[in-house]
Amino acid sequence: MIRLENISKQYDLGGTTVDALKDVSLEINRGDYAAIMGPSGSGKSTMMHILGILDSATGGKYFLEDYDITALPDKEQARIRNKHFGFIFQSFNLFPELSAIENVMLPMSYAGIPYKTRKDKAVDLLQEVGLGHRMTHLPTMLSGGEQQRVAIARSLSNDPDLILADEPTGNLPSDKGEEIMEILESLNKRGVTVVMVTHNPAQGRRAGYVIELRDGMLIPGSPNLEAQNV
């Protein structure tokens, strides 16, 4: 589904060039459940941003379903993020001005879905994550776990092929984190590809495989290394 070939990413920090990713190649197949792990500064978030086309690589190629999407125009990138990817962030990133249901409806409005359809879909998704009774609440009136469940419902609104979760349980107590993990696992079982950044080795073990990064490079022996030899 996704193939990265020799991806590198450099940042220019006040005249100093920092290599966030160095020559990374990997492949993620449809239905995979991958965990990206590594210490702070290893390039996990950069990897996540490159995978989600939230940032552009300074070198290498990115193939999505064998299409080279490395240098697509902005409008096309936006369309892919909207239709094919769902994002879950550590700090939830809900819009405080919108109610839970409106937050879920938001990505659908960019897909041009009519109001009634997106509202019905948002109701279904919120019920699915157990928030049928909190739909009109503003995010500030919801607990952290509830906010993350709204974020998950939002990420699913356009039926994405890939869920990109950046430390989805990082801001939650363990019991609430467990609920989120269970939701992600059930999504994966339904065929949704899940790529999750995590610090937590236990959560890493629950993934199908781990992509381990250090200093912007894939660690040799990482389970994905066999797959990346393309």
């Binding site: 939230l54 990138q77 936006a78 993020r81 239709k83 990133n93 938001l106 990505p107 960019y110 939002r154």
Partner: peptide, 16 residues
């Protein structure tokens, strides 16, 4: 600014 980034992640183009 941050919200704009989130909107873009959710599918907003620069034109939007």
């Amino acid at each position: 600014k941050k919200n704009v980034g989130i909107l873009m992640a959710l599918g907003a183009s620069k034109n939007s």
